[in-house]
Nucleic acid binder design. Structure first.
Lengths: 264, 264
DNA sequence: CGGTGTGAAAACCTTCACAGCG
DNA sequence: CGCTGTGAAGGTTTTCACACCG
C-alpha cells in the first residue's frame, strides 16, 4: 500500500475513517463503470463484488457519508457517483504538476485515469535541459528553473514526484515552498515535510516484496519442510544470536555470509 | 494497500501481522542506506526516523521477528538487513514477468528497485506484434502468444500486469493458469483469482484521489466556518435522489436532503 | 544510563446480525 | 419480502509505559 499521512490533529466530528476514504475511489470506479452501462441502481452486494470488498464493509462505509440508499432496492448509481465525487473533492478541477519526466513520469503524464477524475496535468517539469520543450503525452516539458513560477501561476496544490531518489527531497522542498500542500511520491525515499502537507507514497518494489513474502510462505507450506537453497533455518524458537557485532564476521544463514541483496 | 485474498489459515504458526509485513520493506530500505554508509548499528529511534515511522511501532514489529537487538545499544545493521531479507524471502531470486509494455510497463522494466531486491525481470510480454523483439530496458519484448511457455520455462511465480484494464482479467487468467501465484496489478480493475493466488494492486489515480480528499478538507478548514467542505452546496438540483422526501425522513447527508448537480 | 522488548490499554477497523423501512 | 443502515461484538494495529538487561 502505500500510505503516507501526516498526523491528523485528532480532529472533530465530521470524520470519515481513513480506511473508508481509501476505498471511496474504488467504489467510484465501480460505479462509473455501471453508469457507463446505464445501470440505474445497484445493491450493496453487487457493488461490493464489483469493487472487490464485502458488502457489510461497503454499507458501513456509505453510512459515514449519509443515507444514500433505498431500503429494499439499493443505491441509485448516478446519485452515488455524485456524492462520492463530491466527498472526495473531485467535483472541482485539480491542477497537478509532475516533476521528473523519465519513463515513469511519462507514463503518469499519459495516464488516462487522471484526466477522467478531475485531475489536470498542469505541467511536466524536468531538470534536464535537453527535455525542455519536448512534448510528452502532448504536453511540453518545462525546465525546473521555472517550477515556482508554474506553481504560482496555475495555483497548483498537488505535486507528483517521479524523480530519482537523490533529488526527491529537494524537489519536495521547492514544491512545498512554492505552495504545494499535497504530494504523491514515487521516489523510493522518505520525504520530510512541514505540518499541514500531506504525502502519500507509492513504491513499486515494496509491493513486490510483500508478494514475495507471501509467495515464500506458500512454497514452504506445501512442502512442510523445505527444499530451497535457503532453508527454513529457525522458525519456532526466536533463538538466533542478537549480538552479531563485528562488521565482517556476522554469522548468518546457511549460505556463509552476505545476504543476497546489494543494490548498486 | 490492497491485500489479495488468501486469508490467514489461522492455524499456521509463525504469524507476522500483515501490517508489519508491509513495513518490513521500508525498514529494509532504510537499513540498506545505512549499510552503504557503513553505519554499524542503529537505535530504534534513528531507524524509525529514517523509515518514517515511530520507534515504538518499529520495536514492536521487530519483536515479531525475534530479539535481534542489543539493549542499551541498538541493532546491528548488517545482521538486521539479512534477517529482514530472509523473512521477506529476498534471499532467493524471484523471476518476474511484466505483461503490457506501454509507458508504464517500460518504466517498470527499467526500474532499478527490482533488480536490487532479488527480483529479476525474466521477460517482457506484449500483445502487439510490432513490439516483439524490440528491446526495452535492454530486454527484448516477447509476444503474448508465448506467455505460457515463458512462465513454465523460467518457473515464474510472480507476474506484473501493466496492460489496459480491458484485457487485464484475461491476462490474469492466463498467468494463473500457467502457474503464477502472485500478481501485482497496475490496471485499474478488480481481478478475480482462485484461492491461493495473491493479488496486490497499485492504482495511481486512487492515490491522487485520496490526496484530493484531504486537500479539499484543508481548503474548507481555513475558510473558518464549519459546515463541511461543501458549505454552500445548494447548487441547482437535478440528479436523482433515491427517495428523499417525507418530513423527518432520511436526512443525514452533509447537505441535508437536497441533491446536487451531477458533474459532467 | 540508554535502549530494547513487551504486556496492557487505547484506538481503529471489520464483521455480525438484525431492526426497520420501502 | 429484500435490502439498507447500524449497534454491538470481535479482531487487528498502534501507542503507552516500564521492566529489564547490556
Amino acid at each position: 500500500m502505500a500510505t503516507g499521512r501526516t498526523h491528523r490533529p485528532a480532529t472533530r466530528s465530521r470524520g470519515i475513517p481513513e480506511a473508508t476514504v481509501a476505498r471511496l475511489p474504488l467504489y467510484l470506479r465501480a460505479l462509473t463503470a455501471l453508469s457507463e452501462r446505464s445501470v440505474p441502481t445497484v445493491s450493496s452486494e453487487e457493488l461490493a463484488a464489483a469493487a472487490g470488498v464485502n458488502s457489510a464493509k461497503l454499507r458501513k462505509d456509505f453510512s459515514y457519508l449519509g443515507s444514500y440508499g433505498t431500503r429494499g432496492v439499493g443505491y441509485d448509481v448516478e446519485y452515488l457517483v455524485y456524492q462520492i465525487s463530491r466527498e472526495l473533492g473531485l467535483t472541482q478541477d485539480w491542477p497537478v504538476v509532475i516533476v521528473g519526466i523519465g519513463n515513469l513520469g511519462a507514463a503518469l503524464a499519459g495516464y488516462g485515469g487522471f484526466a477522467s477524475r478531475g485531475f489536470r496535468v498542469a505541467a511536466l517539469i524536468d531538470a534536464d535541459p535537453a527535455m525542455t520543450g519536448k512534448p510528452v503525452a502532448g504536453i511540453p516539458v518545462q525546465h525546473s528553473d521555472d517550477l515556482e513560477k508554474i506553481i504560482n501561476e496555475d495555483g497548483v496544490s498537488i505535486g507528483v514526484i517521479a524523480t530519482p531518489a537523490g533529488v526527491a527531497q529537494q524537489v519536495c522542498d521547492r514544491l512545498v515552498a512554492a505552495g504545494v500542500t499535497s504530494i504523491l511520491n514515487f521516489a523510493p525515499t522518505v520525504l520530510s515535510v512541514p505540518d499541514g502537507v500531506d504525502v502519500r507514497k507509492v513504491d513499486l518494489s515494496i509491493e513486490l516484496q510483500i508478494l514475495a513474502f507471501h509467495e515464500q510462505r506458500k512454497a514452504g507450506e506445501e512442502a512442510g519442510a523445505e527444499s530451497g537453497p535457503d532453508s527454513g533455518t529457525d522458525t519456532g524458537a526466536p533463538a538466533a544470536p542478537p549480538a552479531a557485532r563485528t562488521a565482517g564476521g556476522s554469522r548468518k544463514g546457511p549460505d556463509g555470509d552476505v545476504p543476497a541483496v546489494m543494490p548498486a
